[in-house]
Design a protein around this nucleic acid. Structure first.
Lengths: 157, 157
DNA sequence: TCTAACGTTGACGTTAACGTTATTATGTAG
DNA sequence: CTACATAATAACGTTAACGTCAACGTTAGA
């Protein structure tokens, strides 16, 4: 059984040990197995989980709170059906799924909006860059001309 | 001269008055003119500035610290247009422009990476949603069948 | 001119997201 | 078995990014 100590996880994820324990503490991460003495023994899945958390945090700019909700849905979907014995009431399950669908749609719309705004910003930066490059080109030809003139003067004297 | 009071700015930007003053305090925003009595009088440019700040904060997930640097840089870029014909040392200007070009390229690459990762996440969410919708469909047909059976039993009795 | 609504400056409060000890227990190389 | 690195818990500290409250001055409309 390949398992990792907290320091290994820290190295692989780039998080600090404190942060890893913190994420477990606030329920952002499933609590890992413990050794006889109480040392945390992480599995590969924990590392992958953390990487998804990091991605949501850095790329999407979600708060840990938001990530928690997002992750909860994700977990439920990819579903450890064994850990959670099946819900016996289909009605309840149906409304839950419908709620999830709504939330997902909302998230997707937010993502689209975000992408749109990033593209706008990108456009702006590209315009800037065009100008800058234009300026560079002009200055370079000017300099070339000046150099040529200098050379001619040099040969003349 | 069209000028705005802080409450107008708040309404137009969606920020609170406190936040607007805070942004000025930490130098994220140029200090506006003041009336005789000390009331802040904002110009259009302040609002636009704030909108760029908000965009960088929300869309790019920059910290206010990072935004400050980014903004300083952007100012320099737009400022460059006006300063441009006046600078007397073309060599100095050339290297500066080249540096800018490099920075812009870097920023653009970062943006592309960010977009890519967001698209990945979007893909994932769409997969999730597919599953959820599949589950909903299944439960709904099940329920429909159950209702039909109930009806038949009802008519039988 | 009066006054209600709005603005200003402190200054302290709050929350998220960790950092930093300190103390004590655990795991492991020799 | 021992020493020494590593881990755990607990608890207090910190920083960013504002919120909130108090006390007081300013503006604008009837």
């Amino acid at each position: 059984m390949s398992d990792y100590k907290i320091d290994d996880v820290a190295r692989e994820t780039g998080l600090t040990k404190r942060t890893i324990r913190y994420y477990e503490e606030i329920g952002l991460m499933p609590a890992p197995q413990r050794s006889e003495g109480g040392t945390r023994r992480y599995a590969r899945s924990h590392i992958e989980h953390l990487q998804r958390v990091i991605s949501a945090r850095d790329v999407l700019g979600f708060s840990l709170q938001e990530i928690q909700e997002y992750m909860a849905y994700a977990e439920e979907l990819t579903g450890q059906r064994e850990l959670y014995p099946q819900l016996s009431e289909p009605d309840l399950q149906l409304s839950k799924l419908q709620e999830m669908d709504g939330t997902l749609e909302l998230q997707l719309r937010k993502l689209d909006e975000k992408i749109g705004r990033i593209l706008l910003l990108k456009e702006e930066l590209e315009q800037f860059r065009k100008r800058v490059r234009g300026g560079i080109a002009r200055l370079e030809t000017e300099q070339a001309n000046r150099t040529k003139t200098d050379n001619m003067e040099g040969t003349e004297s």
